[in-house]
Design a protein around this nucleic acid. Structure first.
Lengths: 214, 214
DNA sequence: ACCTGAACACCGTTCAAGT
DNA sequence: ACCTGAACACCGTTCAAGT
């Protein structure tokens, strides 16, 4: 589990028998399906999710206390992918030059977001219907916590306010990517983002870097 | 009017008599009120808006075909403020150095967003409940269209792909600001943003600038 | 232990009736 | 021309009854 969900958004109960594990998986999968279809015409409705999952509404409410909890679970599941990608990038980049660190981070983040691009877009929509403050907050927190020692490990530079730098870097990276992906991004814009994002991030670090006393 | 609203989101009819102008203004104001209160407890409901405005639900629907149109009108009204600020910044910055242009843009944009900070946050919430693609799209378009000649006018540099540069600059600026403001930003974070945002933007332009042949 | 689906409360939207 | 508010359809959520 990515993080402890706030009490109100926790699943109602964990499935105990094999049968119900299947049910929960079906419900989560059905939610994504309806969500992707929802862009076109149908709205996301608990009844529709139940239908698609082949169960009754009551069953959905047996595992999720309300619609938000259901959406929350789906969002959480997908954020895990991005978080894992950033963690892996941090491990690979430790001790390299700050430019290499920057590129590793930006390209890994972008790759994780775009590899499941329809899912990412559907989930920006989910995040809309939800008060995702707690979940996103803890994801951001974790990301910043990972960035501070990473930037500190740069072989060729030192930075003044590491906490502030990490906060800003995260906002810049996630914000820019979101601003481009949120609405459908065509091939050209994706390519532009892929070229410019590393430049943006490297440029910011360059502006804040102090040459390291060797 | 900022832009032609898509057919579906247009107000139902324009107020013809003085009495109804007052009504429409009251409805729009009531919407913001309920929206700001909504953060805490109450949800935004057409009935609640009507109550707060001192009219009946039917009256609301006389001027706005549905709830979305109502929210849309409020969003539009507030985006106008930001757009005007950017336009003014463009006028002031034309022909200056690219660093001056960058600072003028970033600080004007940020000032416009933060001067009405509770409104801005409420409106990020509005944008959530709405399919704001068309409106934001045209705002972004207009902003890019303003940026291209502005960057071209820089006295000390030239840029290769002006359209791409403007697209990226807009995404970076708006995305970063949103990522910080969307959830409540305390005084420290605002100050950090105010310090770092100009650095980010200048750094990106620096990385893409080619010294001008004099 | 798990599932069903009719029933309830609430909200967006309409429209016949009023001034 | 403008306003009212009861009425309707739809959706989130519950719970007594089933296996």
């Amino acid at each position: 589990m990515l993080t402890a969900a706030p009490e109100a958004l926790k699943p109602r109960k964990a499935p105990l028998q094999a049968r119900s594990e299947v049910t929960v998986a079906a419900i989560l999968e059905a939610t994504i399906q309806v969500l992707l279809a929802a862009g076109s015409s149908e709205r996301l409705t608990t009844t529709r999710v139940a239908e698609r999952a082949g169960v009754s509404v009551g069953t959905v409410y047996q595992y999720f206390p309300h619609k938000r909890a259901l959406l929350y679970a789906v969002l959480e599941q997908h954020l895990q992918v991005v978080t894992d990608a950033v963690d892996a990038a941090c491990a690979r980049a430790r001790g390299k030059t700050f430019a290499e660190i920057s590129d590793e981070l930006t390209l890994s983040y972008l790759a994780a977001k775009t590899s499941r691009i329809e899912a990412s877009q559907a989930l920006y929509l989910v995040a809309r219907e939800l008060d995702t403050g707690d979940l996103l907050g803890s994801v951001h927190q974790r990301m910043r916590d990972a960035l501070v020692p990473l930037f500190a490990s740069a072989s060729d530079a030192e930075f003044d306010d590491l906490t502030g730098l990490s906060f800003t870097f995260r906002a810049m990276l996630a914000g820019t990517v979101r601003a481009v992906l949120e609405r459908g991004a065509d091939r050209d814009r994706l390519e532009l983002l892929q070229n410019e994002l590393p430049v943006i991030c490297r440029a910011y670090l360059t502006a804040r870097a102090q040459p390291k006393a060797a």
